[in-house]
Computed example of a mutant assay.
Amino acid sequence: MEQEYHAGLSSAEMANLWTTYQGDSMSICVFSYFLKHVEDEDVKKLMTRALDISRNHVEMIRRIFKVEDIHIPQGFGEQDVNLGADSLFTDVFYLHYVKQMAKGGLETYSRLLPDIYRRDIRAFFSNCLTSTVELNDAVTRLMLEKGIAVRPPAIPEAKKVEFVEKQSFLLEGLGDRPLTGLEVSNLHKNILTNELGSALATAFSQVVESDRLRKYILRGKDISIKHVRVFTDYLNNHSLPAPTTIDETVTDSTEAPFSDKLISYHFNLMTYSGMGNYGSSISQSQRSDLAIDYSRLLTEIMKFGEDGINIMIDNGWLEQPPMAAERKS
Rank of each mutant, 00 (worst) to 15 (best):
K103H: 14
I301N: 07
T299A: 15
V161G: 06
H238V: 12
A325E: 05
V184C: 09
E13C: 02
L170Y: 13
A158E: 13
L235V: 11
K328I: 15
P243Q: 05
L9C: 04
G75W: 06
K261F: 00
P321Y: 08
I217V: 11
L144G: 04
S185A: 14
Y234E: 09
K159G: 00
S126W: 09
R296C: 12
H266D: 14
S288I: 12
F124Y: 13
M47D: 11
L213C: 04
T180C: 02
L144W: 06
E209H: 11
L106T: 06
Y272W: 13
A201T: 06
W18L: 01
V161M: 15
N315F: 11
S126L: 11
G305L: 05
Y294C: 07
R212Y: 13
G104H: 09
Y117V: 14
W317M: 07
S168V: 00
P156W: 05
Q74M: 11
T232Y: 00
R296I: 14
S131K: 09
I282Q: 07
L187C: 03
N315P: 01
T249H: 02
G147T: 07
I53V: 14
L187W: 04
F31I: 07
E4H: 06
E157W: 08
S168Q: 07
F76R: 01
A154P: 00
I301W: 07
V133S: 09
A325K: 12
L192H: 00
